[in-house]
Design a protein around this nucleic acid. Sequence first.
DNA 1: ACAAAATTTTTACGCGCGTAAAGAAATATG
DNA 2: CATATTTCTTTACGCGCGTAAAAATTTTGT
Lengths: 341, 341
Amino acid sequence: MSAKLIRNMEEFSAISGISRPTVSKYFNDPDSVRPSTREKIEAAVEKYDYRPNIFAMNQNRKLTKNVGIVVPLLTDPYFAEIARNLEQRCIDAGYRPTLFSAHGDPNLEVEVLDNLRSMKPAGVLLAPLGRASRRDALEKFCDDVPTLIFDSSVEEFGIAFVGSDNFQFTSHITDYLCRTGEPPCFFEMKTPANPNAHRRRQAYLTAMESFGHTPQVISVEGEGWSFEEIGRLGGHEALSKKQFSTNTILCSNDRLAIGLLTACYEQGIKVGRGPDCTIRVAGQDGHPHSRYTCPPLTTISHDYNAVSKHAAQALFAAIDGHVEPWKSTRIEGKLVLRDSA
Amino acid sequence: MSAKLIRNMEEFSAISGISRPTVSKYFNDPDSVRPSTREKIEAAVEKYDYRPNIFAMNQNRKLTKNVGIVVPLLTDPYFAEIARNLEQRCIDAGYRPTLFSAHGDPNLEVEVLDNLRSMKPAGVLLAPLGRASRRDALEKFCDDVPTLIFDSSVEEFGIAFVGSDNFQFTSHITDYLCRTGEPPCFFEMKTPANPNAHRRRQAYLTAMESFGHTPQVISVEGEGWSFEEIGRLGGHEALSKKQFSTNTILCSNDRLAIGLLTACYEQGIKVGRGPDCTIRVAGQDGHPHSRYTCPPLTTISHDYNAVSKHAAQALFAAIDGHVEPWKSTRIEGKLVLRDSA
DNA sequence: ACAAAATTTTTACGCGCGTAAAGAAATATG
DNA sequence: CATATTTCTTTACGCGCGTAAAAATTTTGT
């Protein structure tokens, strides 16, 4: 029950019996006051439902409790999922996360960073657009604001990088495919949005050679972030021209694989491991949707939890002043066996 | 080129040759100053790259330029897409949108609204969780903050409702299915998260009766927002028990349909309109993913653009003081014919 | 119980900007 | 050109809170 409407910290301090500077200190860090006063304040907060004005709070503080979370494309469930994960971790750690998406547009990415600047964030968790990102703007931002880069690494910007181990991803699933059937061809975009794609291709080539197989890479045309459509169109063309030298196709990512599956369906080609199936298709990412494709997609999944945990912890440590040299943490993926391969 | 670092509006006013109150007025509304002074200010803004401190700006203003966009589940590409659309419209209209997701949790929804309150938003675009939303908290919020409800209507809360015309959706696609084959069964969740589901079931029943067919509703168990999995499990059960009385299934929404398609695949049932197909499946929503299912999903699509346009315009009008009685706008969907039905 | 250490209170100023009021200057009207 | 109108400048105060410094109080250690 709120007894009386508290308008500001002055009134709150009067009614709670604690001086305003101490109340201010409490809201900045509840652990910085004596337990007995903390209890009094919290009782009063409960009773009067008071919250300090965030604008006034942030005005004079050099460092706010704001944390920006920036992803390249929020309509991609993969990014939505990892953003959700990160958001929760920020809240749990006492920060105020704000979500941003560059919507696949490098100009918007720069705008987002500009907006973020004006929020004086304590730190930022940034998944850059990748290839299309404006390097100079990104670098300047990382210099000014403690920024942890995740998902896709851009040079040695920011305080650290946390992402998945793309070499391990592709080696592992390539190995699996070779052991269980014909060695895979590699299906990718010619000009991928994201540098992870290059790592994956390289890992594919290396793995294939180490197994003594001849690699074959099919690179399809297409710009932008409509991966499914690019995979579908590219798949149609590659299938029609019989460009796949084996019956197994490893896609650079799940969204491309989803498009390829659609192309296969549209050409009446049966995908899977069954005796009546013509080809096997595998993806990479553990996309939230991959369970529901037809057939369900065999893939290698990001460890969403581990990535977000490492990323958040590294950022919070940096905010707390634990300076460490730039570091790249790459987390292994887990093979998800389904019917497609 | 920035010549000198401007620290505050005082310095900016001095260097731009315009008094501080006028500069302040300009930043609040660029059209409120004479064109000649506007030019001077904008030249200086360009030259010195000055932006007012948003915290100081918002502290004393009763009404900020902040707009909250709240969706029930950002990992659902449907909501991500409409949120993206709304975000852009806010920016274009000179507002500062901030994106929130309740992540399917009613408690989080209340927390989001609480957080939103502290941002003193000029207005909020809210897609409520639906059935699970806490009515009292929602109503109180709508009383305090100009709120436009979209997607899913909750009584007559807020300044207006804008969403899709669920009756038209279901009538239209039911009509299509009846005209092109056997009349459809209706596949839905027994306890749907969202009141639109009830409208759709009702529209199905009405349409079937008006066509002189016997309706059949299959309601599957399942709580929460994992619609695909609910559709898959429910689909397996219904298929095994041969609960579908005709060869055509209209799903309450696309995500459920996607799960059902997976179940069909897993049972070796061929879906589509071809001669070799056993059943037809249709969805509703025009989910971004529906193009890439196997077979591609016939559905009736939200008019994303029209919904977001109406919603944004109605909110901005209300913010500008155009008071109108509560109104519900329901926008028709467009049939998207694909191979599944 | 007493000194030392930790915490809180008191007092006071400043952050960057919104905004009100009164007068000066520029523009519009006839 | 004189007057009415709009816009701008000057001056001044306040928003709600951060924060610094010195004094007062409470807690801790022995």
